[in-house]
């Protein structure tokens, strides 16, 4: 069978693979690139276990022929950790807050959540907003609560400290000092 050369940036590194024309991106990632973190739960775009970032947008890799990813920048769950391999704030929040149970949905959910965090940089998305953003990723174990909590905690973590203080200040019984910090932070914005 004829094969087509496809080139993309995968988790920061250039990759070139030769693939059958209709081979799914999911299979190319799992088989040709040996990155098995991306999972298959349905193969028809319903479960989101195969979610990857394509040029910053979350997509179901089971629906996309690999040739469509030619020239694209791809991020899979293996590319979410910090340089050096330390867990990102998002991954860490999933570990400490119980966001991963059996873990089979986790790679896809982390990738979708990552997209949300990129989109809402500097702001903590609300409960409903997180639920909406993750509605394409099925999880049968957690009931979603701890996932939503973990995503929001990671967003909070990612915010600059001063902005965090500013957000908290109106709610907390603000001490004079906290109020000053908050004011400074608001001005800084």
């Amino acid at each position: 069978m004829s094969r087509i050369a496809v080139t993309f940036t995968l988790n920061g590194a250039r990759r070139r693979v030769r693939v059958a024309p209709m081979k799914r991106l999911l299979d190319v990632l799992r088989e040709d690139c040996a990155l098995t973190g991306t999972k298959e739960g349905c193969g028809e775009g319903e479960c989101g276990a195969c979610t990857v970032l394509i040029d910053g947008r979350a997509a179901n890799s089971c629906l996309i022929p690999a040739v469509h990813a030619d020239g694209a920048t791809l991020v899979t769950v293996e590319g979410l950790a910090r340089r050096g391999g330390a867990l990102s704030a998002l991954q860490q929040a999933f570990v400490t807050m119980g966001g991963a149970q059996c873990g089979i949905c986790t790679p896809g959910i982390l990738v979708s959540a990552q997209e949300l965090l990129l989109r809402s940089r500097g702001r903590v998305p609300g409960d409903a907003e997180v639920r909406e953003a993750l509605a394409g990723n099925l999880c049968r174990c957690t009931g979603y609560q701890k996932i939503v909590d973990a995503v929001r905690a990671a967003a909070r973590e990612a915010m600059p400290a001063r902005a965090r203080a500013a957000r908290r200040a109106p709610k907390a019984r603000a001490t004079a000092k906290a109020r000053r910090t908050a004011k400074r932070a608001r001005r800084a914005r």
């Binding site: 991306t38 769950v77 867990l87 999933f94 570990v95 400490t96 119980g98 966001g99 982390l110």
Partner: peptide, 23 residues
Amino acid sequence: VSIPKLEAGEKVTGRARYVDDIA
């Protein structure tokens, strides 16, 4: 006490090997 879940580390990095991931 709710210590960090010990089995979660491998699952959030994609390193955990499920049956279909085993070559």
